[in-house]
Design a protein around this nucleic acid. Structure first.
Lengths: 211, 211
DNA sequence: CGCTAGGCGGAGCACTTGCTCCGCAAACTA
DNA sequence: TAGTTTGCGGAGCAAGTGCTCCGCCTAGCG
């Protein structure tokens, strides 16, 4: 992954006199931008996206002016953090699936990894509700593609009629359960996961209702 | 069920000189109170409990002063509506279970009824997150008792180790799925429900992990 | 080292939202 | 019907939050 500081310098070196940006970002500006994103990610994982901007500024040790210089709208910062954390989260889950021994284990490990991420990141869970029907390819569709592949590989083991959309919705549904049981009963969601995945096995022949 | 107006009159007739209330509520006061609760229930079902109080006042055709005379804190109104709607909702689900032909159908019909309620009432779903560990007997425990009985009756048909707590969490989890798919894909949650319930069947012998 | 463009900080504005206050009106009583 | 008490309405207050403005400062250049 390209770090922000490298990105800023490359842009500056590549086009030193772009009308949009004549000089490289100052060193303190780069540090500050990184601190802001880091603090925002931390606090958004804890409390979701509806966070007081002052709290982010405080945690990153930066003034309001600085924050709004880098991210003119709160929404800009939220998107930046979400793009980053969502991608990392989805990638970790994909990786868990890749390392599995067989198609069924791939599905299981994918869910386990993804759900343990959900449990610890409120903003990611919230983003589902907003991007569920959103065509932005860095959001749900990214996830959908992975699940589509896992489903294809495990097709023989899955009950007839199970769609990728079912798998996405299952993830979101269990993600919610994971999130709010995680504090007082960590990993209780593992039981629900096992139950649901067993319900997906090919031995169940009863057709699923048309959605 | 005792209607509010009747309740108010009975109190007044029974104890006309209670220090807390010397006279019966005025007729317009009773009408207004009912209108407020009704409007609040409607708007809370649509938008959840985080609603602007002015919106409730507007919809019920009442001023702010009137609203706050009847419910000194917004929280009071929210509790009143939630107690009412949660009870009606839980009762409807219980009734669906009672009318079923066998223990498994009772479980299925209970979930189906409960989830179709969740899908149309944001505030009820939100209340789960808040009352999950709350001992207040009009909330989750009420639900837990019903599920406990359904579980006992269907014990032979359920996989070993399934707890009432699992059934509660499943309801909440699917309730979330029901809620946010209901707009664009109504009843898609029926598929997840069938899958999950099949995962609960006794033919699955693999033990569930300790939570 | 000195200059200056670019960056920094945080007080403060605008708007939202929970809640209060008080002059006025209408419902009940006798 | 007249008097009184209860209730009504909505302007306005206080606190929270997104965002701006502007004077000061310093990193980077020559």
């Amino acid at each position: 992954m390209l770090r922000v500081s490298e990105y800023a310098r490359r842009m500056a070196v590549a086009e030193p006199h772009t009308p949009a940006r004549r000089r490289a970002l100052r060193a303190d500006a780069i540090r500050n931008r990184e601190a802001i994103v880091e603090a925002a990610a931390e606090v958004m994982a804890e409390q979701g996206a509806a966070v007081d901007v002052r709290e982010i500024a405080r945690r990153s040790g930066v003034g309001m002016g600085t924050l709004y210089r880098h991210f003119p709208k709160k929404e800009d910062l939220v998107r930046t953090v979400l793009d980053q954390d969502f991608s990392r989260w989805a990638e970790a889950a994909r990786q868990a699936a890749i390392e599995a021994e067989d198609p069924w284990a791939a599905l299981t490990d994918f869910y386990r990894q993804a759900l343990s991420g959900c449990a610890r990141h409120r903003a990611i869970m919230e983003s589902f509700a907003l991007t569920w029907t959103d065509p932005d390819p860095t959001g749900i569709p990214q996830l959908r593609a992975v699940l589509e592949e896992l489903r294809a590989r495990a097709a023989e083991l899955l009950r007839p009629g199970v769609t990728t959309e079912d798998l996405v919705l299952l993830l979101i549904s269990l993600g919610y359960a994971a999130q709010f049981t995680d504090e007082c009963r960590p990993h209780m969601w593992n039981r629900l996961l096992l139950i649901s995945l067993d319900g997906l096995r090919a031995e169940h022949r009863e057709p699923l209702p048309e959605s």
